[in-house]
Simulated scan of single mutants.
Amino acid sequence: MIARGGCKVLELAILGALKEKPMYGYELKKRLSDLLGHLWKISYGSLYPALKRLESKSAVERAYTVKAKTRNRYVYRITPEGEEAFQRLLVDTRKRSEITDADKFSIRLAFFQYMEPEMRLWLLERRKNYLEERLNEMSGTSKSRYKDTDSYRQGLYTHRQELLKSDITWLEDMIESERDHIQESKKDKESKKDKETLTVEERGGEKLVIDDGSIKNMTPLQA
């Protein structure tokens, strides 16, 4: 469960959820529970103070009200300032715990679609390197530390190792997929650039070389 630095993490999650669409409090709480429920129990006691903080920073605003049976509901939406704040929080990994803490890493992973591909790849590789260090440490001390322990503790230790191996394998797949995505994007950009900078058309016995939409050269076609 997330504890230290929880305010910033909650603000990141709220801004990320509001990027999807404007929401009122109950709807926002439900969406955050769907996103973070396995990491953090979202309560109104933490949600509304966080919304108030974000409002004071002009990152969130009350767009309009929705009439309800008992009282009107405020619908919150992210502002341009909030968009900038979200991006800053999303890529702020100055603290090592943003990589090593599984919950904090998972929250960023939930909003990976809003990151640049190179940043996603960097975070995935950092997380994988950290888990590999953990696994190597466990493997190096397993024989001496658990030599005389009972089978239950040995089983727990083995289980932890298997979880680390599973996470590393999953990250390797994610990294490979991200690298492929980056390469494909580069190829698409290069192909698009080539088409924009040089287009050859044949018209009435002439070859028109068109650069960025304007004719740069005109030569007769060879018979």
Rank of each mutant, 00 (worst) to 15 (best):
W40G: 00
E184L: 02
Q183P: 01
R77P: 04
F111G: 11
L18S: 01
R31Y: 06
Q87K: 09
I107G: 07
Y130F: 15
R77Q: 15
L15G: 06
V66Y: 06
E81G: 04
N136K: 15
G140T: 06
Q154N: 13
K195W: 02
S142W: 12
N72I: 01
H38T: 10
A223I: 09
K193D: 04
K52H: 12
A17C: 13
T65K: 12
E125W: 06
T199E: 14
W122D: 15
V209T: 02
R88G: 02
D188A: 08
S166L: 05
D101P: 08
Y48L: 13
L90Y: 01
K69T: 10
E20F: 01
Y48G: 04
R120D: 01
V9S: 11
Y114T: 06
K67R: 15
F105T: 02
S33C: 10
Q87P: 00
N136W: 04
V91C: 03
Y64K: 14
G45Y: 11
E55S: 07
Y24K: 09
R77V: 06
T70K: 15
N136I: 03
M174S: 07
A13F: 07
L39S: 14
E132A: 15
T197Y: 05
K95G: 03
L12N: 07
T79H: 07
T219H: 09
R126F: 03
H181A: 09
E201A: 06
K95C: 06
I14M: 11
A63Q: 03
Q222H: 13
D34W: 01
G205I: 02
M115W: 06
G213Q: 07
A63P: 00
R120Y: 01
I210A: 00
L171S: 08
K189N: 00
G155F: 10
K8R: 13
L198P: 00
R179T: 04
S214P: 00
R94C: 04
Y64Q: 11
E190R: 01
G25K: 05
E184I: 02
Y48A: 10
L156Y: 02
R126Q: 15
Y48R: 13
I107M: 13
D180V: 05
P220K: 15
P220A: 11
E162S: 03
P117E: 03
K19Q: 15
T197V: 02
R120V: 05
I182D: 00
F86D: 04
S166I: 01
D150H: 05
M23E: 09
R153L: 13
M218L: 14
T65F: 13
Y130H: 15
K8P: 04
G82E: 02
F105G: 03
L198G: 00
R126M: 13
K216C: 01
K128W: 11
P220G: 06
D194A: 05
Y26T: 10
S139M: 11
S185P: 00
G37N: 09
H159W: 06
S185I: 03
I215T: 06
S166N: 09
K128C: 14
A3C: 05
E206Q: 13
Y76R: 05
S139Y: 02
K128E: 15
K195N: 01
T93N: 12
R127C: 08
